[in-house]
Design a protein around this nucleic acid. Structure first.
Lengths: 175, 175
DNA sequence: CGCGTCGCGTCAGCGACTGACACCACGTTG
DNA sequence: CAACGTGGTGTCAGTCGCTGACGCGACGCG
């Protein structure tokens, strides 16, 4: 992270990272499958947390309510760890190769959400659809929050899911 | 495509592609920014077509109806060119690096859809949300179609958007 | 004929990775 | 205590994606 922020991702070589960490370059590649993965280490935990949050959501909720509930919980972690994740986002945002990897991780997390929804008894197809579209709304909220941090992520999330419901049911004023 | 299908993407070197094409390796990289981009050449056209389809959709439709309309039109092209795109999908499906690139292209197309929706007068935030979630439903339908080609893509599309509406409005039976 | 320029080939080089091998600090077992 | 396996490391050589710089020939134009 230090090096990526100082020189940018593309201008940082794996050898430099290894040197800064006090290990050999070969050792670096034994711990990370590639240079990008360094920034996506916690995603495994996030996946587990997300899965658990979906499973632990109260009974009797409809699918989108379950997702909203789970995302709000994840959102709380996001807001708390913002000091941690903000520099990471800044690096990713300016580096196409990293944005690609992030999208791949999102797909991976979406799969986990779909599996968790199925475990709640939702039908196979519906679980996938709900996970995909719900995740899209989640990402929209996160983006809106980054663009406008004056409102809480939670507020953005509630608005996104509210807007989604409105979009799916009735016509909306062009505003 | 020939080489990617014969040996797989990872086992194919840029030099081999260039040789098969009868040009120098350096020349290959003058036409394509990287090895993966070979498989994503038509995306520019698709982006334009998608944008146009959104803009050309009838007036008076609500956002998701506009998207459904545009996606159905794109879907028709997909079904027609299936012989072309099927081998491409097979290569992409088994190659993580290519799946990453594809997701990046999807984000790029989603942006185009959002812009087109705004051009129709939809509010800034809503356009982004509708584009993201609508695209998610589209991709879900495409995936369902690949998994079950016995039904038309169009049918899968209609079902996906119908299910999405149902998900967003009321609780659904666990099926 | 002379002139730009445009596409290409050639070459040298960087950096991300990878496989193979040796080393060394351990805990285990005889 | 010695032999042994084991897991993390350094070293080296090599492949491959990709890039910059240079030179060449083909082409259009005055």
């Amino acid at each position: 992270m230090e090096l990526y922020r100082e020189r940018g991702f593309d201008q940082t070589t794996a050898a430099e990272i290894a040197a800064r960490a006090g290990v050999n370059e070969r050792t670096f590649f034994r711990h990370f499958p590639d240079k990008r993965e360094v920034l996506f280490d916690g995603e495994g935990d996030l996946r587990a947390a997300l899965t658990q949050a979906v499973i632990d959501a109260p009974d009797g909720l409809e699918p989108f309510e379950v997702l909203l509930c789970a995302f709000r919980e994840s959102g709380r972690n996001l807001e708390d760890n913002r000091a941690f994740s903000q520099p990471r986002w800044e690096v990713i945002a300016v580096t196409p190769a990293l944005r690609e990897r992030e999208l791949a991780k999102h797909a991976w997390l979406t799969d986990a959400v779909a599996v968790a929804l199925r475990r709640r008894g939702l039908g196979h197809g519906l679980a996938g659809l709900a996970a995909r579209t719900g995740w899209a709304a989640f990402q929209h909220a996160v983006q809106a929050w980054i663009d406008d941090p004056s409102q809480s992520l939670d507020a953005h999330l509630l608005r996104a899911f509210g807007d989604l419901r409105a979009l799916a049911t009735t016509a909306l004023p062009a505003k």
